[in-house]
Design a binder for these strands. Structure first.
Lengths: 214, 214, 214, 214
DNA sequence: TATGAATGAGAATTCATTCAT
DNA sequence: CATGAATGAATTCTCATTCAT
């Protein structure tokens, strides 16, 4: 009873977060039980309450952390250019990479919005909106510059994001396609989708050996 | 207390189905309770069991019925042509229309696969697969005929379907966009996405004033 | 609301077992509700699930424990003789004593076999069979040695066991008969029943004043 | 809807009684559901209420009918003698025969007393008591006449009845033993049990060929 | 820091029973 | 005579949560 030898709060908290993401991704937030979560972490259900004040709050924390990570990573790595085509290429690369590397987090963030209380949902949706805006800004700029041809930048944003995010629902690590090829294919599809006048090197690179078109 | 005056099994069952779709779409299958469902229909919770042997089975029935409706509708209305471009245009039209008309059903079918028991999931996934195959066949034929330029027809299927299906998550009846404009915009995006050489009349109609490409 | 002051798992589990035996004996397993059981123990219904995974499993545990106790007690106290008459006398003494001391358990074990799932029933019946075999072995040996006269040892086992076990259905602690007299009467009846040639000292002691037979 | 062609109240009622006895014997009264019963009879649950005002009342009716049948049959067929030995022989024969012929009814009558409401139980127990008294009277008369040697006629009644009734729990129609042999064996056991001075012709008949004892 | 005992509210499900048809 | 739609109360069981230790 009491502290297990060598037990460590930070380690435990991290283990709970990891296990929670996995479990929520597998079963859904409502279907996941704290007993299951505790069992996977190797602690008693009551112990989870040292780290999260409630099951609901745990979901909020997880989602906010994920979206902030997403935004932070984009900001940190975005190219210092204004060229919409280059920006879109970078965004697709970033998005597809992250959505395959952190599939579970992304999946949860997309699926579990409705498990949030209204106030929490607003907070999370606002963060997600900031992420969507990144793409909308790129598409609008590109559209105005004549680089892209989309009927409506906001709708195109939804379309492209849905398309890109969908990758998470079928891509499996170690499958037929490597992450590099995946990124290349999705880059081509996204570029074509927004009617990029010059789909540029990625397109060429991908299809050069196939002797197609260009 | 016995049969209520004017009660009718078929009517009740239909009311339960409708209410169930709405509730599951709103709260998620796990979060929905039969009490809630019964309350919305105006019967006692136990009465639901005259029509569905269990909550789990209710979900299966709902999903299977939806997917069979989807497949049946496509088969009934598909154009009698072999032209991939015309077929794709018809498919986009069909899909977007149905996914806005039956938004709740589609949403549920996309979200609640994981609430199914493995055997039920296999059954539902098999039906969904048949639907995906419709698009894959179109893209493959078009790709081989040189009408489309996609790196991989299966991946393009996932991309286009994700893009089109995404419409359900933001489109609202009576919003800024009518269904007709919506279909036109998504048609353009899909056509561009698969690199359609000649996006045809719809594209022309929509984009004529932009003086692009064709 | 959390652990009640001074609560103790072992104590609680034991209280549940005791109360369960009483309740099942009174009402029958199917008729007993966990609410009732919990109420008698002084806990909430849900708390029972800390100790038993299901109502059904509780019954199995109770029955298996009882039968193992029965077998263990006989093995521990059986006389080290080969004399069938002495063994039968000891068995009757043991059986009648235990079936009055642990009336409720015995009653439950006899009545609730049909409340068990097939697999559980097989397990319990196998244990009971081992107990029956004790008597069959005694009767067979005695029969072959000419000490008993029974048409068929197995049938005589059923007859004698039924006779002895029946005591539980009418004997009441503190009634007209003490346990000692009870044992003596049943010993006589059992001995006569199997046609014991020399019913030995117990018979003599009990029936000396009747000047019968021997 | 409404009357099935050729349906007939008396036939239906009888079918319900038969099915009820079987089901109660199999599962126990509490565990049997009216749906199950209705299903076995081939009617809807509601239809049972044409014949029995409630589930509880059905059990009472079944038990009372059975016990009255038992008493009536004994009265109708009892030998016109005063000889305790002959009477006991007749009683054993009657009891064993009936308890194998109407196993299910007997079993139910023995098991389900506790499922009755107090008033109903009193009524049924009184009938059963009248049946027990038949044997007690025989044993007391025989005991006083020196034909039997039992410590206490009432206790001997319980012992002998338990022994005889036990036959129902293992005897199976078409098994190793015919009903005639069964009766003979139980007659011998019962006679020996009550210390019958002269176990009479049955004993002789049964064991003559075995060259045992006499 | 963690456990383990317990709570209490609520979940799905069952079932005897009723009654319009 | 029988059905089939519905009830409402109760049942087993689950689960987030609490808190003495």
């Amino acid at each position: 009873m009491a502290r297990t030898v060598g037990s460590d709060g930070a380690r435990t908290e991290d283990a709970i977060r990891q296990a929670a993401i996995s479990l929520i991704a597998e079963r859904g937030f409502e279907a996941m039980t704290l007993r299951e979560l505790a069992g996977r972490v190797g602690v008693q259900p009551g112990s989870i309450y040292r780290y999260f004040p409630s099951k609901a709050r745990m979901l909020v924390d997880l989602l906010v952390e994920h979206l902030q990570f997403l935004l932070g990573q984009w900001e940190a790595g975005r190219p210092a250019t204004d060229d919409p085509v280059a920006l879109l290429r970078a965004f697709v690369d970033f998005h597809v990479r992250l959505h395959t590397l952190r599939r579970r987090e992304v999946f949860v963030a997309n699926m579990e919005l409705r498990s949030l209380a209204p106030a929490d949902r607003r907070r999370v949706v606002a963060l997600r909106r900031r992420y969507e805006d990144i793409l909308t800004d790129i598409l609008r700029a590109g559209s105005e510059a004549g680089a892209f041809h989309v009927p409506d930048p906001r709708i195109a944003t939804f379309a492209v994001l849905a398309m890109l995010t969908g990758v998470g629902s079928w891509y499996r690590e170690g499958g037929r396609l490597g992450r590099r090829e995946l990124v290349e294919q999705y880059t081509q599809l996204a570029m074509q989708c927004v009617g990029a006048v010059d789909t540029g090197s990625a397109h060429r690179a991908v299809n050069a050996h196939e002797g197609r078109r260009d």
